[in-house]
Amino acid sequence: MADYYSSFEPKGTRWLLQRLTAAFLVVVLAFHFMLLHFVNHAADITFMGTNLRMQQAGYFLTMVLFLVTATFHGVNGVYNALVNQGISGAPKTVVKYGLALGGVVLVAQGIRVALAMAGIL
């Protein structure tokens, strides 16, 4: 039988954050689908409606947390998948900092869009 290997340290911080972000994403994604696909159908979604929703503090905060959490979860997952596949040395360092930079840029742009949608920018 093949040995099991994971780059996550069992019960380590990254291991815990990956699980917590997954749980948060399941709940927020369910909220997103319920609100924007069942309560309001796709044909009913407008720029003005998005603008009004984003002006509500709770919705705005939820969407920003959704962005940050999804970005962390994705970047952390991709990085650990590559480590599990055996990436090491200089390529591992390049990937780590490249993914971190990409994550920061994605979150910054997402927050910029969220602020614009809320009418703050």
Rank of each mutant, 00 (worst) to 15 (best):
M1R: 13
A2K: 12
D3H: 08
Y5Q: 14
Y5H: 14
Y5K: 15
S7N: 10
F8M: 10
E9I: 12
K11G: 02
T13R: 08
T13G: 06
T13Q: 07
W15A: 08
W15L: 12
L16Y: 12
L16T: 14
L16K: 09
Q18M: 03
Q18R: 14
T21Y: 04
A22W: 12
A23Q: 03
F24M: 06
F24W: 04
V26H: 09
V28C: 01
V28A: 02
V28F: 02
A30L: 13
A30K: 14
F33A: 05
F33M: 13
L36P: 00
V39I: 15
N40F: 06
N40Q: 12
H41G: 09
A42C: 10
A42E: 10
A42F: 13
A43N: 05
A43F: 02
I45C: 04
T46C: 09
T46P: 13
F47E: 13
M48V: 10
M48I: 11
M48C: 07
G49P: 14
T50D: 01
L52M: 13
L52I: 00
L52E: 13
L52Y: 08
M54Y: 00
Q56L: 12
A57Y: 05
G58E: 03
Y59N: 08
F60E: 00
L61Q: 03
L61H: 05
V64E: 09
L65T: 04
L65W: 08
L67A: 05
L67G: 01
A70S: 11
T71Q: 09
F72L: 06
F72M: 07
F72T: 11
G74D: 11
N76M: 10
G77Y: 12
G77K: 11
G77N: 04
G77R: 06
V78N: 07
V78C: 07
N84V: 04
Q85H: 15
G86M: 11
G86W: 03
G86K: 02
I87A: 04
G89S: 09
A90Y: 12
P91T: 15
K92C: 04
K92N: 08
V94P: 08
V94F: 10
V94R: 13
K96R: 11
Y97S: 10
A100Y: 15
A100R: 15
G102C: 08
G102H: 12
G103Y: 03
V104I: 15
V107P: 02
V107D: 03
Q109N: 13
G110C: 09
G110T: 07
G110D: 14
I111T: 08
R112N: 07
V113D: 05
V113P: 02
A114F: 00
A114S: 07
L115V: 00
A116I: 11
M117D: 02
A118Q: 01
A118R: 00
G119D: 04
L121G: 02
L121R: 06
